[in-house]
């Protein structure tokens, strides 16, 4: 990827309640790039995403940040709150566990960013249509039943709903924290496809939203296991000892002799499961920007070998990806 840099960490050090999570870490993410940040549990991957959002701390924990985090050319840590809030509208985030609002049903959760930021320029019908379109693409229409609260969702459904909420106002930066942890291999692969490839399209958008929705989407996904993402990420980085070290692309990861990388690779969850052919999964092309397209009834990846008209028994598998 050689697009313009949208996220830059310049010698960032982060201390949370006295514990150092980042130590003069550097990172550059280009526009339209999909970056996978891998690291052992508790090493501070979530803080990388939180720093990009301008939320370095966690709750009321005491935090010290040194260095600079630049997003879209603006120092995120120095920006006044109103400007930061405007900037966050362009960033979709899925935090660990989803961060769904528990006293709202699923539909209201997904519609919340639209209702808050664009409630004065979008009609209720437009907002509802967007929710329906995203849940339809995810084949999770049943979650939109009135009164269906997050408490009744399993972890994977929560992540899907959080992803829908993150994407509903068409951000150009998507941050996802360990989406597939605790999810079965087959379900995790489908979820990973949505995380890396899916970008909803809507017939109309307010002017303020159109401006950003035309830009390529930059995605950063954190994980504790590398192998499930090998086929999806453009670039991989390792967070260890407070440093973000670039590994490179898929081949560089597979060829790396770094014991930390080998360790994260060995945490494979790829278990053959009914409905997913492992051979198919292994031959999938590496992710490449917005390479999902909409067929008559579903979203499919350009690299899918199941062609339209050949769906039949395997059609469901194509959709499930």
């Amino acid at each position: 990827m050689s697009g313009k840099p949208v996220i830059v960490f310049d010698k960032v050090s982060l201390y949370v309640e006295g514990r150092r999570f980042l130590d003069r870490a550097d990172l550059v993410v280009s526009e339209g790039e999909s970056l996978v940040v891998a690291g052992a549990g508790g090493c501070g991957k979530s803080f990388v995403l939180r720093l990009i959002l301008g939320l370095p701390g966690m709750g009321r924990a005491s935090v010290r940040v040194e260095g600079d985090v630049v997003v879209d050319g603006h120092s995120i840590l120095a920006e006044p709150l109103p400007a930061l809030q405007r900037r966050r509208r362009n960033m979709g985030s899925v935090m660990s566990g989803g961060g769904l609002i528990e006293n709202m049903d699923v539909r209201k959760n997904i519609a919340l960013p639209l209702n808050y930021h664009y409630g004065n320029v979008m009609s209720t019908a437009e907002i509802e249509a967007r929710c329906d379109a995203i849940l339809g693409d995810m084949e999770l229409e049943e979650l939109a039943l009135p009164g269906r609260r997050p408490v009744s969702l399993n972890r994977m459904e929560r992540i899907y709903v959080a992803l829908a909420r993150a994407l509903v106002n068409q951000p150009n930066i998507l941050l996802i924290d360990e989406p597939t942890t605790g999810v079965s291999a087959a379900a995790g692969e489908r979820l990973a496809r949505f995380c890396f490839y899916y970008r909803p399209e809507f017939p109309s958008a307010p002017a303020a939203m159109e401006e950003m929705s035309g830009r390529p989407m930059t995605r950063i996904i954190t994980t504790v296991e590398l192998e499930p993402y090998l086929d999806f990420g453009h670039r991989f980085a390792l967070l260890a000892n407070g440093k973000i070290e670039e590994i490179g692309d898929r081949e560089a990861v597979l060829g790396s002799a770094d014991p930390n990388v080998r360790e994260l690779l060995s945490r494979s969850r790829k278990v053959a499961s009914p409905g997913v052919d492992d051979a198919d999964s292994a031959e999938l092309p590496p992710g490449g920007g917005s390479c999902w397209r909409r067929s008559d009834s579903h979203w499919c990846h350009q690299g899918d070998r199941v062609k339209e008209g050949e769906e039949g028994a395997s059609g469901r598998t194509a959709q499930a990806r």
Partner: peptide, 11 residues
Amino acid sequence: GQVEALEAMGI
């Protein structure tokens, strides 16, 4: 984490 989720949405 709901408060932070709201903050992350720019709310």
